[in-house]
């Protein structure tokens, strides 16, 4: 039941990301629902579960994007690793800590892309990316993230009584 529900969430998030989320773009930037979910898994799940989720979601995102396979796996995998480590050292509840985690992870995600397009992909990217697009992207993710955390928490709580065993080692 747990894995089935996670698969449904993944299908919904990936479908939304690749279809109607474009309608909510602001200045040509849309939020990254997968990034928010990776941070959620890193913060809420066990260390192994969080890192595993980061790598798998990054890999799927790579498969559904036109970039080089491995860029998102690297970025999401490392984000999941860092935040699953940091969650024991910081109090991650409430809008502000979650928002800060998401701003940091968005900046890291954008920088990984920025360096990969300049090196591996041999493409062009303007400096506007760093001082305009990346800040908007980070703030957008930070604004939408807490809301997604609440929704994912509710789904988790709804599933909990039906599966007495812990979900992938959830720490809550």
């Amino acid at each position: 039941m747990y894995y089935f529900s996670q698969a449904l969430i993944a299908i919904f998030l990936f479908s939304a990301q690749t279809t109607w989320l474009e309608l909510f773009s602001f200045g040509g930037v849309t939020p990254d629902l997968i990034l928010v979910w990776v941070v959620y898994c890193a913060v809420r799940c066990s260390r192994a579960g969080g890192i595993g989720a980061g790598i798998v979601l990054g890999l799927v995102q790579d498969g559904l994007s036109g970039g080089v396979l491995g860029v998102n796996t690297l970025s999401k995998g490392l984000i999941a690793y860092f935040f699953s480590t940091l969650k024991d050292k910081f109090y991650v509840e409430g809008v502000i800590p979650i928002g800060i985690f998401l701003i940091l992870s968005s900046i890291f995600d954008g920088l990984v892309f920025y360096f990969s397009i300049g090196t591996i992909l041999k493409g062009e990217v303007t400096s506007r990316f760093l001082y305009q697009l990346l800040p908007v992207y980070s703030i957008y993710n930070a604004l939408i993230g807490p809301f997604m955390f609440v929704v994912l928490d509710k789904i988790g709580a709804w599933l909990q009584p039906k599966t007495p065993n812990s979900y992938m080692g959830m720490t809550r």
Binding site: F14, S15, Q17, T18, T19, E22, V29, T30, D32, I34, V60, Q61, L64, S65, G66, G67, N72, G110, F113, I117, Y137
Partner: peptide
């Protein structure tokens, strides 16, 4: 056209 890139940055 049935979808767009799953990441923010590629125009695909």
């Amino acid at each position: 056209v049935i979808g767009r890139d799953a990441t923010q940055w590629s125009k695909v």
